[in-house]
């Protein structure tokens, strides 16, 4: 067990170091997330009072899109120079590789959210910095990173991989997205923790069990 966690930690550390030196994922995802918020503001033209009503939708659509980019980039980076084959040849178990990748994406997305949440609070004039929204964000990001890592492992192998990930990912992640939007709206209206949080927790637990197993099946070939 200790060895397993050690392997996961090494894999995560490798990706963090790579990101610290190149900074290509975090910066591009951050700019992209802000762009989505900007596009929404132009498209919806929210009047001063409406920001708080539209904020959950804008926030989670922006985070869903930037999430798909994050998980794709973490995998494409392995794919480009045969890094994935190298990883699979090491004695690290498939589960450790999967959890390492999922944890990396989880941390990247949390880092992006740590910047986007205050930025959106200011842009949309909505109090997005609260405990209810923080818990929502952690639960949603956990599910995003888990399922996203599995599907990007599939999508990078297919033709037209840019379209394959959203096509696979969004229908299945939808309950989590609904939960995140509703739960954020609940927190924004001063309700604190919503009843959607347990549902999101169930979703995360289910896929934290299923996805590593499915990843092992995909990587057997």
């Amino acid at each position: 067990m200790t060895q397993f966690l050690g392997t996961v930690a090494v894999l995560v550390w490798k990706d963090l170091k790579l990101e610290f030196r190149s900074r290509d994922i975090l910066v591009s995802v951050l700019v992209f997330g802000l762009l989505v918020a900007l596009l929404f503001s132009f498209a919806l033209k929210p009047s001063p009072g409406e920001g708080a009503r539209l904020a959950p939708a804008i926030l989670w659509v922006a985070l869903a899109f930037s999430g798909t980019i994050t998980v794709t980039r973490t995998f494409v980076r392995e794919q480009e120079q045969g890094g994935l084959e190298g990883l699979l040849l090491t004695p690290a178990s498939r589960d450790a590789i999967f959890l390492g990748k999922a944890l990396t994406s989880f941390l990247f997305m949390l880092a992006v959210e740590a910047v986007l949440l205050p930025a959106f609070s200011a842009l949309l004039a909505a109090p997005l910095l609260s405990a209810g929204i923080a818990v929502t964000a952690v639960l949603a990001t956990l599910g995003f990173a888990t399922l996203g890592t599995l599907f990007s492992a599939i999508a990078v192998q297919t033709r037209s991989r840019e379209i394959m990930l959203p096509v696979l990912f969004f229908p299945i992640i939808l309950p989590l997205l609904i939960g995140a939007v509703e739960s954020s709206a609940h927190a924004l209206s001063g309700g604190g923790f919503s009843r959607w949080l347990p549902l999101m927790g169930v979703f995360d637990a289910l896929f934290l069990v299923l996805c590593p197993w499915a990843f092992g099946a995909i990587m057997e070939e």
Partner: peptide, 24 residues
């Protein structure tokens, strides 16, 4: 490969259905 990928989506998708149903 396609068979394995489709099987994974078939299983994950089916496991997702009850959650989708309850959430909507």
């Amino acid at each position: 490969r396609g068979a394995v990928y489709a099987a994974v989506v078939g299983i994950i998708g089916f496991a997702d259905v009850p959650i989708v149903y309850y959430s909507v």
